[in-house]
């Protein structure tokens, strides 16, 4: 039984997971409601918040799992990549708890957590597979050969897809969180009304670029407000739907190129943007046409959470990778550095 803790960005989260797959509890001190109250994209995401939250969140995870700290076999904690101040809160809490309980600690890479979040589900992909992690901070494609063996195939060169959603939502006055606001608004719009750019870069490139799209929408919104863009004919919903379609097109196109290149039959999509229904729909459609299976974790495992960290940590501990008390956080932590040789 493993406790997983993540404090790499805004959320303080803790979860209790058995054998790296059965989730007994998964508690996220989400600050989305706080953001909403201020009506902007403005979290109170200080390290201080993590300090305030962490004991409460861990105790709640024990309570919901119906266990005590003496039932734990190990603790998994995110050591990077992320903000040093935020990561340190999680790490030092874990060091103290592990010392008291005399149990091993696994140092987890946050990105590996996202990739392995799919193993918290009943339906899991066979290795090897291609994974797309897509969130506010990341848009990356990985080739996953096994636990601990990940190769980065492509990534965003500027903005992450989730960031594009949030910034476009802000430009359009649609509120926060931007991903949900745009998805909701897009339901009432036509996604082919405006042809926003698709940044495919070169034909075979697996890298992404969303900053040009963000700028294109900003310029379009300006024209739209000035009444130059056939106002009356084009609605805000059309803009939202057309923008969303542009992001979805590129994500689906590139992950399928990666899939063909590696010749795998399974595609995993994780991270906050993986909750987007239009993206799921399109990916399933395209993958289905090629006889490829698509796997998504449920939304609570898509956003940052402790359960995925526990899942990744479980495999570290199985391999005998335990960290000692000198363990430190890493603001930069490329996933390739995890590579496990035979």
């Amino acid at each position: 039984m493993i406790l997983g803790i993540d404090t790499s960005c805004d959320d303080t989260s803790a979860a209790v997971v058995v054998d790296g797959k059965s989730v007994l509890s998964n508690v996220v001190h989400s600050q989305v409601e706080i953001h909403h109250a201020y009506g902007g994209v403005v979290p109170e995401l200080a390290s201080r918040e993590h300090i305030k939250n962490i004991m409460v969140v861990v105790e709640e995870s024990f309570l919901r799992a119906g266990i005590g700290m003496n039932d734990l076999d190990g603790i998994a904690v995110t050591v990077g990549p992320g903000l040093v101040g935020a990561l340190l809160v999680g790490l030092y809490y874990v060091k103290g708890l592990a010392y008291v309980c005399d149990i091993p600690v696994a140092a987890v890479n946050h990105l590996e957590g996202h990739i392995l979040s799919i193993f918290l589900e009943e339906r899991t992909p066979p290795f090897p597979f291609v994974a797309l992690t897509v969130s506010g901070g990341h848009t990356s494609i990985y080739h996953v050969e096994d636990y601990g063996r990940y190769t980065l195939m492509g990534q965003t060169l500027d903005d992450a897809a989730g960031e594009a959603f949030d910034k476009v939502a802000k430009i359009s006055g649609l509120g926060y969180p931007g991903g949900i606001a745009i998805e909701k608004m897009a339901l009432d719009g036509k996604n082919d009304k405006i042809k926003f750019p698709r940044a495919y870069l070169t034909k075979e490139s697996l890298d992404f670029s969303f900053s040009g799209l963000k700028t294109a929408v900003a310029l379009y919104m300006k024209k739209w407000h000035d009444g130059q863009a056939k106002e009356g004919e084009i609605t805000l919903a059309d803009i939202a739907a057309s923008f969303q379609e542009s992001v979805v097109d590129v994500l689906v196109h590139k992950v399928m190129i990666a899939r063909r290149k590696m010749g795998v039959k399974a595609v995993v999509m994780a991270g906050g943007v993986a909750c987007n229904k239009r993206l799921r729909e399109r990916l399933s459609e395209v993958a289905g046409g090629e006889g490829v299976e698509v796997y998504y974790p449920r939304p609570e495992y898509c956003t940052d959470n402790g359960a995925m960290i526990a899942a990744a940590g479980y495999h570290c501990l199985l391999r005998g990778e335990t960290a000692d008390m000198s363990l430190d956080v890493r603001s930069k932590f490329p996933i390739q550095e995890l590579w496990i040789d035979d």
Binding site: S135, Q155, D166, S211
Partner: peptide, 14 residues
């Protein structure tokens, strides 16, 4: 080295 937007991470180090 790809320099990406730190809007979400708040800080990227190179």
């Amino acid at each position: 080295t790809v320099i990406t937007s730190p809007s979400f991470s708040l800080m990227n180090e190179y």
